[in-house]
Design a binder for these strands. Structure first.
Lengths: 195, 195, 195, 195
DNA sequence: CACTAAACGAGACGGTACGTCCCGTCTTGAA
DNA sequence: TTCAAGACGGGACGTACCGTCTCGTTTAGTG
């Protein structure tokens, strides 16, 4: 409805539809109406049909998620703060997102799975990012001596993604608790205790 | 194909179909033929229709996965061996499973997602199981003094599930490497080094 | 809607639609609604789709036309009366038929053409029928001596069909004129003048 | 493909397409390609769209048919020869024409029907033409005394068109047979026997 | 032993959505 | 200006399933 590229408008509409009716329930007709576009045009933009649309919309949405998380985290300065903020903001975004909440439903959701193949990718990206942060910490002399940065970043990445996907007991809305978790579990053996 | 309960025969057929054509591609007609049953009967057994069938077949298959993993692990005696064996056997089963391999495909698969909601559940079950193992280790005096068993089991669970779902660099077919991983990363600060 | 066979109900609906909107304009959806049937069912009855439906409905309707004409003609006793009645009733039915009137429209109509292939067939049937009448007349001694019955019946058939399809000057609603036409043109050299 | 008027090029292309794929099967895209023209241009030349194009192309082709038949017939001198030649050449042209042959197919063809509305018109034109020939014969003293020229020309026209559209037993490729037919059936009671 | 009731097989139907084709309109850019 | 090129909305087509229903038929279980 403006100068937003047609493709993006359609993907955005698809995401909104998925949030509303659930991924398996919306029809391309719904998306077309939501995007203010004809069904034909969707097939012109995504020749692979529904499948391609869902796939691309999903990765597009995932990218947007991490982009926003990245921006939020960039405002912080220390590694610990970034982890804490990342966990809290991420959990909040997930909670807010209607997709994720509907994803809790026992009914089947393609989106989550369309998002599956991107998991190893995400793992890699996040790990590299965290590694760069760790290196910075190391250069600042705040990392323990015997620490293997590669191994440590992989480890922190796993814990982060795991906690984000299933908090399991930790209340990520509580900053103190989250910070406690990050300190003891995530960075325990890595970062030297602040004096 | 004889005195096996009808329900199970249908679910097994559904799993086979999912392995073959992918979850979104098979029709109830396919399942019916595969199970040597009429389509009507499927609706009689699963009044919720396709959705219920996929859901139940998925969790049924997941349960089978963990059951088999459990049996394999039960043969081992120490915590470390159980973790190593669990990781290796689990990874192997995932690799062998045609569903999982097709799941790598970028195309959409409901099964994986039908399996999603069980994730927190699985987390809980595995954590409790590992916790019981840790308690045993503790009673055997093989756990470090300051270790919080609850926290440690949660931690080991996260690492296990994470590594299973995305190995990311670790070769879980290599026992030495896997054992090394388990020792240093999983049980590093928890179990006292064997003398 | 009753115990009328589904197939016939659909064809009747198709004919009504053709009468209404013109043959090229109606959609299978229209026919489905008109027949009180789902679109799917039409495809189940006519696997050849729209084409087959139009084809069959057309010949079905043509057959109905000639059947009714045959009944009307059967009431008459002499050859001349049958021809006169046939021409008049036929012209009247064509005039009444909304299909035929819309067929006058310069716009394209498939029905008329779907009916085309049946033309030689119709020619044969009508010729045989007229031949049988001629033979009866001959046996009654009312046919001229040198008349070749085969040739004569073919001739009368051509004139009949031609006049029916394009009257061109003759008013087939006027019995006197029609009878005059039949006597002088159709049976002129064939039947012996009544004394 | 050069200075031939755009309109004619398009209609010629339409006729070729109709000959190839059948009338209902070709798309405007096909015609555009065949005519070496953009689809837009077709709409500029035929604002009525596909319908107008088919209509005009059909009558254009029909006119061409009769024009060519007229030229062939003009070479003959007597009425009988013109009729014989007309029947034979006409039948031959119809047989050769790929459109007409495909028209025999049971599948639906708009062209034939687009040509339908012109039937009464054709009847009138042919009749007037034949009437003029008959008048000439009459002036040459070769027509029977009691013959009504109007009625006779109408009659000959009907027989001619009828035989052309459905020969029904007569072999119009055999000159002797055709001539025999024309003499006995068409001109029997009209033209005085040549001495 | 027949009779009935439940479970299954077979198949028709309504309905939803998909992917495709084509039409007719419009805009943009180049000759 | 005229035309080519191409995007778009819209309508219909033919197909694939789903879920529901109604019939036979087989199989047990019971009077």
């Amino acid at each position: 409805m403006s100068d937003v590229p047609l493709r993006d408008r359609i993907m955005a509409a698809a995401v909104r539809c998925a949030e509303g009716r659930g991924v398996r329930r919306f029809s391309l007709e719904d998306v077309a109406v939501e995007a203010g576009v004809s069904r034909t045009t969707i097939y012109r933009q995504f020749p692979g049909g529904r499948e391609q649309l869902v796939q691309e919309a999903a990765t597009w949405e995932v990218a947007r998620f991490w982009r926003r998380l990245g921006r939020a985290v960039a405002a912080e300065s220390t590694l610990e703060d970034r982890l804490v903020t990342g966990l809290m903001v991420g959990a909040d975004m997930i909670a807010r997102s209607r997709i994720m909440s509907t994803l809790q439903d026992p009914d089947i959701e393609e989106l989550a799975v369309a998002l599956r193949p991107s998991e190893p990718l995400v793992h890699g990206v996040i790990r590299d990012y965290i590694r760069s942060l760790l290196v910075a910490e190391q250069e600042a002399g705040r990392v323990g001596l015997g620490v293997d940065v590669d191994r440590a970043s992989d480890y922190v990445t796993r814990m982060t993604l795991s906690v984000l996907s299933s908090p399991a007991g930790v209340d990520l809305a509580d900053e103190a608790a989250t910070r406690q978790l990050v300190r003891s579990q995530f960075l325990g053996g890595i970062v030297r205790a602040e004096v």
